[in-house]
């Protein structure tokens, strides 16, 4: 048995480094490929003109607008619903209460439901049963159902992270729970809410399967929430699968989608910091 020299790399070390480096390499490959092919197509004109020739030429203006509208509908519905539910779960029920456990378990299942199944549900319920048809409204509402578990979970964690002393202190001063919630707990839980919001927006922007049968394929500029609108992700899918010669614009759209996701992340971090700073000062 010779003594192992320090320079000799053991097999496990080699394997673990190999895994890390190859994952990094593949990641760079994916991003590099999209950046390389997409950045040439990207221009102000691409963002502000309508698609022509089934998307092979022209830009993505109506698609960006539709994406934003779908997202707006989704958040307008899911934000109040999830914060309300989270407050009830975190502030008014104990972790072991039956009601709380029931709601949490159903949220766990909801979180795991594949997006295509949300698409099926959205199509059957919003598009057909409620008669909303293929529309931005149907798509947004379907997405709202889908992001609900993420939003509730992180909002609940945000509220539970607020120290109990604040609640006791507020109660001891004779403040109502409503006041305590609005003025003290909500601001203190904001970082948690923002984290949830980012995850939710991220998932909603990236979503495709749930939107195919709810918001539809139409790539014209939407005139109302009841119009069909094509989201950015569906645009990428359609260009690459159904339109021969659509790859160039698909690359550019994919790049826009990735940049949007990065922007959402950055903005959320910034807002959280800004909010924290303001809360301590005033």
């Amino acid at each position: 048995m010779g003594e192992k020299s320090k320079n000799q790399i053991s097999l496990p070390t080699f394997i673990v480094w190999a895994i890390a480096l190859s994952v990094t390499a593949v990641f760079c490959w994916i991003l590099g490929d999209i950046l390389w092919h997409g950045v040439g197509q990207l221009s102000w004109e691409f963002l502000t003109t309508e698609p022509r020739n089934a998307g092979r030429e022209g830009g993505i203006a109506p698609i960006l607008i539709s994406t934003c509208l779908i997202l707006a509908v989704c958040l307008a519905v899911s934000l109040p619903l999830s914060v309300g539910t989270a407050v009830l779960l975190a502030e008014f029920t104990t972790t072991e209460s039956r009601f709380g456990r029931l709601v949490r378990r159903s949220l766990d299942v909801l979180a795991g439901v594949p997006s295509i199944v949300f698409g099926l549900f959205g199509n059957a319920f919003f598009s057909i049963k409620l008669g909303l048809g293929f529309s931005i409204l149907s798509g947004g509402l379907t997405l709202a159902c889908m992001v609900l578990p993420i939003l509730i979970r992180s909002a609940e964690e945000g509220f539970r992270a607020v120290p109990t002393e604040y609640r006791l202190g507020a109660a001891a001063l004779g403040l109502s729970r409503t006041t305590t919630l609005w003025k003290l707990l909500l601001p203190a839980a904001t970082p948690g809410l923002v984290v949830g919001l980012v995850l939710g927006i991220g998932r909603a922007i990236a979503e495709t399967a749930a939107l195919i049968f709810t918001s539809g394929y139409v790539d014209r500029m939407p005139e109302s929430l009841l119009d069909s609108g094509r989201s950015l992700s569906i645009h990428i899918f359609d260009l690459s699968m159904n339109v021969a010669g659509g790859d160039a614009n698909a690359y550019a759209s994919a790049l826009v989608l990735l940049i949007l996701l990065l922007l959402v992340n950055g903005m959320a971090t910034w807002i959280a910091q800004f909010w924290l700073a303001r809360r301590i000062k005033s």
Partner: peptide, 20 residues
């Protein structure tokens, strides 16, 4: 990097898979 990888939309993965 792993976090970013988790955030890439499935349609982008699909697209890259399809063309590369």
């Amino acid at each position: 990097l792993i976090n970013l990888l988790a955030g890439i939309p499935s349609v982008v993965y699909g697209f890259w898979g399809l063309v590369v």
